[in-house]
C-alpha cells in the first residue's frame, strides 16, 4: 500500500484501520492525535512500524510487533508468545491473517484468545483476491488440503512476494472463522470517510472489526466482563447523542447516571 498522507506517509489501509479502531473504542471516527492521552486500554498491533504505532503508544498501553515478510503458520505464536491470554482491549492485525496456510481457524482462535471480553479485533486483508497465475507468488506454499476450506491450490493476492489470501467466498469464510472463535458478527468497513481521505470503494484493503462478547453474568463458567469497558461504550454513545442534539458550542456538563 502506497503512502498517501503527504505529512506522515500513512497509507489508505492504515487510515482505514485507524478509522475502524476509533469507531470501536470511542463510537466515532477520530484522528489518533485526538485520542485521549492516558486512555486506560491495553492494545497490541501486528503492523509495520509507523506513525500510527507511535501515536497509539503515546496515548495508551500499546505495543507492536512487525509482521514478518515471509510469515508462515506459527507467526502469531511467535509474535505474541509474551502476551497474556485475555489481556487485550484491542488487537490490530494488519495483513497477517491471510498469510496463514489452512487451517486458518487456528490463527483466528489465537488472536481471539488474547482478547478480554468486550475487546475488539481490527484486521485488514488484501482487497484484491483472485486465483493465481501459473508459477506466480504462492507456489512454494501451495499445498493440497482437505480441511473445511476445501481442496485445491491456495490463491494469492497478486501482490509482489508470497502473500496468500483466502479463496473465493472470503467474506463468508471470515465470518465463519470469527463465529467459530466465539466472536460477535463482524463489521466489514466499506463506508467512505471523506474527511479522512477514505473512499467508499478502494482497492488496497478490507478492514474488519469484530468484538468478543461480554461474558454473561448468568454464566458462572465465564470470567466476568470488564465493567469499565461496557460502561464506557454506553457513555460514549450517550455523549455522542447529546453532542448531536446540542446546539453549537453547547457544553455537556455531566453524562452520569
Amino acid at each position: 500500500d502506497q503512502p498517501s498522507c503527504g505529512q506522515c506517509g500513512a497509507s489508505l489501509r492504515v487510515r482505514s484501520l485507524v478509522h475502524a479502531l476509533s469507531l470501536a473504542l470511542f463510537g466515532r471516527s477520530m484522528a489518533i492525535v485526538d485520542f485521549p492521552v492516558g486512555w486506560p486500554m491495553k492494545g497490541h498491533g501486528l503492523s509495520e512500524p509507523g506513525p500510527h504505532v507511535d501515536g497509539l503508544a503515546a496515548r495508551m498501553d500499546f505495543s507492536n510487533s512487525p509482521p514478518l515478510p515471509e510469515s508462515v503458520p506459527g507467526l502469531l505464536n511467535r509474535e505474541l508468545e509474551q502476551a497474556k491470554p485475555g489481556s487485550l482491549d484491542f488487537l490490530i492485525v494488519d495483513d497477517v491473517l491471510e498469510q496463514f496456510a489452512p487451517p486458518r481457524q487456528s490463527a483466528f482462535n489465537q488472536a481471539v484468545g488474547l482478547l478480554r471480553p468486550g475487546a475488539v479485533l481490527i484486521f485488514a486483508l488484501p482487497a484484491e483476491m483472485r486465483e493465481p497465475e501459473p508459477g506466480e507468488g504462492a507456489d512454494r506454499f501451495r499445498q493440497k488440503t482437505e480441511n473445511e476450506e476445501g481442496p485445491g491450490d491456495l490463491p494469492c493476492n497478486g501482490a509482489p512476494g508470497a502473500s496468500l489470501t483466502m479463496p473465493e467466498g472470503v467474506e463468508a469464510q471470515i465470518r465463519r472463522h470469527l463465529a467459530a472463535a466465539g466472536m460477535q458478527p463482524p463489521r466489514l468497513h466499506k463506508e467512505a470517510v471523506p474527511e479522512f481521505g477514505i473512499p467508499s470503494h478502494h482497492g488496497s484493503a478490507q478492514v474488519w472489526a469484530a468484538r468478543r462478547p461480554l461474558a454473561s453474568p448468568q454464566d458462572p463458567a465465564e470470567e466476568g466482563g470488564d465493567v469499565f469497558f461496557d460502561q464506557h461504550s454506553r457513555y460514549a454513545s450517550l455523549g455522542r447523542i447529546l453532542c448531536e442534539l446540542a446546539e453549537a458550542e453547547a457544553t455537556v456538563l455531566d453524562v452520569g447516571s
Binding site: 498517501s4 498522507c5 503527504g6 505529512q7 506522515c8 500513512a10 489508505l12 492504515v14 487510515r15 485507524v18 478509522h19 476509533s22 471516527s29 477520530m30 484522528a31 489518533i32 492525535v33 485526538d34 509507523g50 506513525p51 500510527h52 501515536g55 470517510v193 471523506p194 474527511e195 479522512f196 481521505g197 477514505i198 473512499p199
Partner: peptide
C-alpha cells in the same frame, strides 16, 4: 486532488 485531514498525524494532506 482531494484534500483531507490525516487521521494518523492530524495534519491536512491531499490526494487520497
Amino acid at each position: 486532488r482531494h484534500e483531507f485531514r490525516c487521521n494518523v498525524c492530524g495534519e491536512a494532506s491531499g490526494s487520497a
